[in-house]
Design a protein around this nucleic acid. Structure first.
Length: 802
DNA sequence: AGCACGCCGACT
DNA sequence: GTCGGCGTGCTC
């Protein structure tokens, strides 16, 4: 093979295709598809990273090929499966192939580019002045305009040159370790031949004899734990008793070493599920199962036992979990069952740790991978089963490029790997449930909670009625009384604040002025810990005003309910109760999330107060009360999934109550007590909700009856944004049939973010064969405008429209 | 992205 | 005249 097709690391539309390079003779058998290489690109001496997609003997290119500069990897980092996946993914998400290839790999494997200046004419006074005695310096964006001008001029005059460096940050920690080629008999002989006073050597040989199976052992460990000095090792090396080798040390994320757990006994429903899925694993067919199991029905145990079935057949398993459910509780359960055959990919890992876990998987040291969205690209071989827990979660969709949905990627991989996919949820997405209805997926229903626990008793509190409309704070008498009783029983409670648009902002009672972000079209929210007003979109901060900036009135104050405010109310109502607050502010620090949950789990607090993040998968036996402060804030969103999201959230959080012997109580406060999403959630009645919601989706032509694609346009100038939007709509109309529905352009919910205006167009359609190519064409045509600050984003099957 | 080429206006 | 501004187009 003398020619390689390479996708270069230049994310633009014009370079979104393979470029051909010649393979130097020295690298003849080395360069293979899936490998990263360094190549020259462009007219200058610029060097960039690229991915080898194909090798061949004949070039289709008319010009002269440049040679590959060097290989970055010794073996391919992407399997053939992943290379194929990248084509499909790029096409499906309208993104650059290079972006797709990069998202499949740990972030440290993304190349870093640096430029250095080197002097050519070392006598030139300007050059001497520029370098200040330094042999070289890095070109960074901290250089001033005049410095850049000078560098450009000197370069044109060939007084200086630029050197391009492609850096590979992915490096494992290398350590020196001790190894021996001698066998046990030879070691004993060598020991006997030693002089009597060679005490260290005896000790060293004893160590080798004892730990022969554990070699290589790191030198530092020998020194630290066995008191064998470096000099002794060197002597032994000289005498050919051992060898010093380099080993790569994989950073093993520290912490949890859970106790070994064993299989739990299955209920009849669980057994049916495990059997069905187990058979599909043996059949090696890409079938999809949807487990619709009420909260507490024991889905996790089904996952674990089906994973075991895959392992028994010498296959591997991939399990996806939403990031917020990736709690120590959950991880312990999996690691406890399968031990060190498990790799966990969660956001708490440092980039180095993540890379090392990736390496373990890639090496085949791992049989089970558990992780959030991006774990769907785990380099597992022989996948026998893919599980997606909390299948309905919006976080499986990445909300920037490439906008992929891990669920779709999983389905793609299941076809290539001939393995089943299991989607599990108490509240499946309408799409998945509808597919099950049509027989595309196998539906497995689990209607009973394990140990036949009762479903929690749910009470809906109408906040509009006489008793509640006049209360001062946010706690209705019903919720207050329930909290009181819970505290008296020494049980625990969870209070959910449905966050969207519900944090405290400042408003003037005199003139109605609301303190807003100067860059974004949103009100600033108060952060008690900072004592400042802050924008959630751009991070803008300003001090709390003590008079209204508009009318100078002193009557400016806080409105709305943030978690901090609720916490204060709880403290006032129940001074003796210990309250833990969990929200973006208290969980920002690494590991803080886990720490709070651990604290609550060990009953060091009575009330856990938080936003969505407390609704998922937590299992605390002492929790007997769940209170929802404002059930309906998600309902008022202009999003067609608003009801679905509200239903899911309420059902999930209600499921947190009464998970052990004790029966749980749930109090839902709402201004829409008759809304079907709230009523059905209270009854944990998914099927009724499903029918009602499907009817409404049908009426308004939305998913799952129609496909949706969202195209958004952003620009600094609002008029220009609108102009571009209408042009876009016209373009789309030429490619669409009469059956397609085109909505917009309309401003997004927050129409201005970081001083850019956002408009969007929604296409709803059933079958539009020309749409895909038209969108690609539009992307091509608007590429040039990107430099002028226009951005067009295409979101295939968006999760939220806002 | 980064670079070259080319065309235009305002300076020694 | 020429320096340097930016708009355009290409990169195997």
């Amino acid at each position: 093979m003398t020619v390689a097709e390479i996708i270069v690391d230049v994310p633009t539309m014009q370079t979104n295709r393979p470029f051909e390079y010649s393979i130097p003779e020295a690298l003849n058998d080395v360069v293979v598809p899936g490998m990263r290489v360094e190549v020259p690109f462009g007219r200058g001496k610029r060097k960039i990273q690229g991915f080898v997609m194909k090798t061949k003997d004949q070039s289709d290119f008319k010009g002269k090929l440049k040679p590959i500069s060097r290989v970055i990897d010794l073996k391919p980092v992407l399997s053939n499966e992943m290379l194929q996946l990248s084509y499909w993914l790029a096409d499906k998400t309208y993104s650059f192939q290079i972006s797709c290839l990069q998202t499949m790999l740990p972030s440290v494997m993304r190349a870093k580019y640096k430029q250095y200046a080197i002097p050519l004419d070392k006598t030139d006074p300007e050059v001497l002045n520029l370098f200040q005695g330094q042999a070289t310096f890095e070109i960074t964006n901290s250089l001033t305009d005049s410095q850049i001008r000078l560098i450009n001029r000197l370069r044109k005059n060939e007084k200086i040159d630029l050197r391009y460096v492609v850096e590979n940050k992915a490096q494992q920690i290398k350590r020196q370790a001790v190894m021996t080629d001698l066998n046990i008999i030879q070691l004993h002989e060598a020991k006997n031949e030693l002089r009597g006073n060679a005490k260290s050597q005896v000790k060293l040989l004893d160590f080798l004899i004892q730990h022969l199976n554990d070699l290589p052992v790191e030198m530092s460990e020998l020194q630290k734990n066995f008191g064998i000095a470096r000099s002794a090792i060197k002597t032994a090396e000289k005498n050919k008793l051992l060898k010093i080798v380099e080993v790569t040390k994989l950073r093993k994320p520290e912490g949890i070493n859970p106790e070994k757990t064993t299989k739990l006994e299955l209920t009849d429903e669980q057994q049916v599920a495990v059997d069905q899925i187990g058979q599909a694993i043996s059949r090696e067919q890409p079938e999809t199962f949807l487990i619709e199991g009420v909260t507490g029905s024991g889905k996790t145990e089904v996952y674990l036992q089906t994973i075991e079935k895959a392992l028994q057949q010498d296959k591997t398993a991939l399990m996806l979990v939403p990031e917020i459910s990736l709690t120590p509780q959950m991880v312990n359960r999996v690691v406890g069952r399968f031990g060190n055959q498990v790799a966990v990919l969660h956001s708490g890992l440092s980039s180095g740790e993540r890379y090392d876990e990736w390496t373990r998987i890639e090496n085949g040291d791992v049989k089970v991978v558990v992780g959030a969205r991006s774990a769907v690209f785990a380099p597992l071989q022989r996948i026998g089963l893919i599980i997606i827990d909390e299948e309905h979660e919006a976080s499986y969709k990445q909300d920037d490029n490439p906008r992929y949905n891990a669920r779709d990627v999983a389905l793609w991989r299941s076809k290539v790997n001939h393995c089943p996919v299991v989607l599990g949820s108490a509240t499946p997405s309408l799409e998945s449930r509808a597919r099950a209805e049509k027989g595309v997926y196998h539906l497995i229903r689990m209607k009973k909670r394990i140990n036949n626990q009762n479903l929690p008793h749910v009470q809906i509190v109408d906040m509009r009625d006489a008793e509640n409309s006049s209360i001062k704070g946010d706690f209705s008498p019903v919720l207050k009384n329930n909290l009181q009783a819970t505290l008296e029983n020494h049980d625990q409670a969870i209070i959910l604040l449905n966050r969207r648009g519900y944090s405290s902002f400042m408003m003037c009672r005199e003139c109605g002025f609301v303190l807003k972000c100067p860059n974004c079209d949103v009100s600033l929210t108060y952060h008690k810990d900072l004592g400042k007003m802050k924008c959630h979109y751009c991070g803008h901060e300003e001090p709390v005003p003590n008079s209204c900036p508009n009318c100078r009135s002193k009557k400016i104050g806080f409105y709305g309910t943030g978690t901090q405010n609720i916490e204060q109310q709880l403290n006032d109502l129940f001074p003796e109760a210990r309250v833990l607050r969990m929200d973006v502010d208290t969980t920002r620090r690494k590991g803080a999330h886990a720490k709070i949950l651990q604290k609550f789990g060990s009953h060091q607090a009575d009330i856990l107060l938080g936003t969505q993040m407390i609704a998922k998968g937590l299992d605390f036996p002492d929790v007997t009360l769940v209170g929802v402060i404002n059930a309906d804030t998600t309902l008022s969103l202009a999003d067609f999934r608003a009801s679905e999201r509200t239903f899911q959230l309420l059902t999930q959080v209600s499921g947190r109550a009464g998970r052990a012997k004790k029966t749980g109580r749930v109090v839902i406060q709402t201004f829409n007590p008759d809304h079907y999403a709230i009523k059905d959630a209270a009854k944990q009645d998914y099927e009724t909700f499903f029918k009602q919601e499907m009817y409404l989706r049908h009426q308004s032509n939305y998913t799952p009856y129609y496909f949706t694609t969202l195209i958004s346009v952003a620009n600094k100038d609002e008029g220009q944004t609108l102009k571009q939007s209408y042009w876009l709509k016209k373009q789309l109309q030429t490619a669409l049939s009469k059956d397609a529905i085109l909505l917009g352009p309309s401003p997004t919910m927050i129409s201005r973010k970081q001083n850019k205006y956002y408009y969007q167009i929604i296409v709803k359609y059933k079958h539009e064969p020309k749409l895909h190519d038209k969108l690609l064409e539009i992307l091509n045509e608007t590429q040039a405008d990107a430099k002028k600050g226009f951005t067009i984003a295409i979101d295939n099957e968006p999760q939220h429209i806002d």
